[in-house]
Design a protein around this nucleic acid. Structure first.
Lengths: 134, 134
DNA sequence: TTTGGTGCAAATTCTTTGCAGACAC
DNA sequence: GTGTCTGCAAAGAATTTGCACCAAA
């Protein structure tokens, strides 16, 4: 996603484009990993030392609510965040903790069918695989 | 799982069958939902008022480590637990918060294939679907 | 100008841990 | 007996919130 796209998303939901918000979106756009709130805070500070941790949490919540950001729990005791772009699953390396993303059309179809068969309309999904490299 | 089975699992891992441990296993066996540590604590207290919250957390950790219990993060800010019986996914009702379990052989196959294709041996997985009843 | 947003710090919530005594084996 | 496990209480870690000031629109 480009700077323009993320900022347009905010505007569309009625969010003001404040300095901290702009910085957060930039940090998320530039992230290739799945940073924690703390990591995001540190990276944001590099761009603007005035940003407060509370502001980071507050906005991550707001952005998640708005569907712009996705929050993940990889079972480490804290949350990790990423821009909500295309739907995808995660493979977590048991040994290194590395997180690899993947997309799979067949999976998507299967999930859709599972939800439907149980009387649900599929709104969102989280698929996490833990594995060891072989 | 029966009382005998869960206790045999503990013995197999070298865990002593203490009173709190027995009570916790019973609470987990009798649970039809996915209780939080707090809920487990409350239910355990009903059987034995002497149990401490710290003991609950400590044992949930130990039992998870031993593969007897599974810890889930449904994105509520706390963890939920269940006995690790058959692998299965969860559908979370967006409106009510109800969690429905499901198993699906096709899904299992798909996940296996996805992991393999990326060079991983699938060790575990969490599949969570959020949906609205239709 | 008017609201929504911010930094700061204190408060909450969930979970972990140190320790002296108790109990399973 | 002895080494694990417990209850208790205090500590820790992650996240949320109240408030007075600031700045987008």
């Amino acid at each position: 996603m480009t700077e323009h796209e993320t900022e347009a998303l905010c505007a569309a939901v009625g969010l003001r484009l404040t300095r901290p918000r702009r910085v957060l979106l930039r940090v998320l756009r530039e992230a290739t990993d799945h940073p924690s709130a703390d990591q995001i805070f540190a990276r944001a500070r590099a761009h603007d030392p005035a940003i407060a941790l509370g502001t980071v949490y507050r906005n991550l919540g707001i952005l998640e609510e708005a569907g712009i950001v996705t929050r993940h729990a990889f079972g480490e005791g804290y949350a990790r965040y990423e821009l909500a772009t295309q739907q995808h699953g995660h493979i977590i390396d048991r040994d290194s903790g590395t997180v690899v993303e993947f997309t799979d059309p067949a999976l998507e179809t299967t999930l859709q069918a599972i939800a439907q068969a149980r009387g649900f309309r599929l709104a969102d999904y989280h698929v996490k695989l833990w594995g060891e490299r072989e």
